[in-house]
Design a protein around this nucleic acid. Structure first.
Lengths: 228, 228, 228, 228
DNA sequence: CATGAATGAGAGTTCATTCAT
DNA sequence: GATGAATGAACTCTCATTCAT
């Protein structure tokens, strides 16, 4: 694990020679800077100067890596929508215990990987910009919504098949599960980011746990008739 | 029903004479046009020309009623955040039947009054712009979030008090109830508005009914122990 | 002739109310300003600010009338290549005297109408920019070169038909006639416009007369064999 | 014929090894590349990248040889304005036959040496840029126009002195001779270089021969009175 | 020598705002 | 009140030039 013992060479180089081996790290730095600025101020209200400044370079440099502001946006979105879901799928197929535990597990992981990182801002960005850049809709639907939905539906079906959950509308339930978590992301980067803004919850992880519990409770197979 | 006896001045003007609109209708027409454009393209990407064109007036006219684009935005938001909640409060205090029915009733009304009208776009607008105009946060928190939350909490408390619901985390449950409905609004004006975009549901009213049912199911007091 | 007794109303208005009834005159003023600047500095080296300043307006105003710098260039070229040739054709078909006199007449008129006005600069502009804007080539070939050539060829043919000129290569002779006059235009707006530049001739009209004479002399039918 | 015994270093390098070009060839290669690009796109519209790319080097390399774009332009012009005339002068003073033949000879040589090579583009470049770089005017007038004019005038005078030509305006006639040839050069690199462009002539050498003939015909001493 | 990443002044273009009509 | 011509500050994008490697 030398990786954790020493500062990364990138960090070292940054402190060291400002103009040296940065080239490889640049695109990533720019994407991060752009995500932050776009989420903070909105795409249209963000100046290329802002992005450049946050990444610690000059305006022209951004154009060495991305041909236009629009392409930068698309790259930001694409870049932040990778990975996440495949991993969930993997966990699901290898898990052995009760589906309720699996659901909690996946929700927690998702929150750690997405909700608590800058990636959470991507949803705000999509909601804001998808109508201005129509090809994003297609991309987002195919790369995120569809597989994400499929993952949750598969999980619910697992619970039903194993006799843990009652028969419910799969898609609606999937949305009922995921929508509050998306709202948490959206809130965090909108009202929640304002000094004067309110707080949904002081402890998002607990909120998620309770949210999952509430839905799980709703999924419970009745052991006796609800209305005797 | 005074609402049906006197057609709104807007309706009258539209049917009547395009150029002899009474000045009283102007601000409303401009606010509607602005809401649509802001929601569609985002605040920054909307030109005053767009708003004027959609309202059927010239650019200069907008400035007769709103001193700047920013003030127009604030007026749009303020204007679309009124009423709704007080009404719900009223219904609640007069309703007599089971809380589950009351919940369905209020959700349906909200969807009809907000979700299905242009006002649904206001949430997208707030999420997008609240960080750029910080006083909106305060305004929104005080005028919408707080009373809305209070309403739902009161409703949940009613159910608990009447022995219909089990003891749950009030705030979390309120959010679990409202968040999917907000997401429906957001989706409708983002991904859902794109040709290539996906659909959450073909029948939002049924989605909401089932969503409420799922949560109600989760609120159900256990008639027998869950784990015998 | 009130037109010559009083200053034109346009001039009057200009001195009077800077922002009044100028709208109708604007496109023309802008085209004139643009021609001057483009010819003086070249298309690429001319800033929209330059054009605007010369026309006495602000930069934004130019864009009210022309959607881009490129379209402004095309409009300048199109605008300055109209009229001229049709008139020559008209003179030719109505003239009755010797072809040599007709040739002198047409050359003089062309010089007065084109060579001595700002329109002379258009040729420099075409030579400079035709490769960067390929549709200009087509336009110029069809609208100027072809009819211009046809006019001169018709004139030469007239001289031959009437027994005034000997049989010569029509196209080459047409070019031999017109090229020096074009060079005069080009020179006037390039080397000739420089303080340090040289002068082709102090009296262009006389130069043209003598040039025409030289060619006419070459067109003369030999009255006796040239080499006895 | 030392010219054929020692191939130019440029030719050698090209045939030899692309990456082991000797440094002596660089400036020449860069000047050639720059001439081509400047003529093709104009000075302002040509990027240093374009020049470097056409010369097969990196942008920075150009700055090893020329301190700025402007100096590169001046070097290109200076470099392409040498030699030619002195040679013509030499031929003239050694020629023994009829002046008409000498004129044809010189015109043909000039066309081969200038018109048919990239150097022909220099005239377009001068016309375009001379007003932006005023010292070019002085340079061009002194180095090209003046000696070129003197050469032709001397030639015409020779014809008059030998009784071959009639008395004509020397300077005008010189211009009448040279202008069409310059126009051929200009045309070749402007309208003539466009796909949609027209053609002055399919056979420039024949055009030049006939042009010279036409003028010679005009220079002919009348053997009998023109108007008996 | 040669490279090409980085810079930043500058150009084309847009658009909120003004104001004479 | 309503218009729309005009403005100019601000933004995206370009490119001559520099310099560490």
């Amino acid at each position: 694990m030398p990786r954790t013992l020493h500062p990364s060479s990138a960090t070292l180089a940054a402190a060291d020679a400002p103009r040296r081996r940065r080239k490889d790290a640049r695109p990533q730095e720019l994407l991060d800077a752009a995500l932050e600025m776009f989420v903070e101020k909105g795409f249209a209200a963000t100046k290329m100067d802002d992005v450049a400044a946050r990444a610690g370079v000059s305006k022209g440099t951004v154009y060495l890596y991305f041909p236009s502001k629009e392409e930068l946006l698309k790259a930001v979105i694409r870049h932040n929508l990778s990975l996440t879901i495949a991993e969930g799928d993997d966990v699901l197929s290898r898990y052995d215990g009760p589906t309720s535990e699996l659901l909690h597990l996946l929700a927690r992981r998702w929150w750690e990987r997405v909700g608590e990182t800058a990636a959470a801002g991507i949803f705000k960005l999509i909601i804001t910009e998808v109508r201005n850049f129509p090809d994003l809709a297609e991309f987002y639907a195919a790369e995120v919504i569809e597989p994400g939905r499929a993952l949750i539906v598969k999980l619910l079906q697992r619970g039903i098949d194993r006799g843990e959950f009652r028969q419910v509308h799969l898609l609606d339930t999937a949305h009922a599960l995921i929508f509050p978590m998306l709202m948490l992301c959206l809130h965090k980067h909108s009202v929640g980011a304002c000094p004067a803004g309110d707080e949904v919850t002081a402890d998002p992880r607990a909120f998620i746990d309770r949210h999952i519990d509430l839905v799980l409770h709703g999924l419970q197979r009745p052991t006796t008739p609800l209305t005797p």
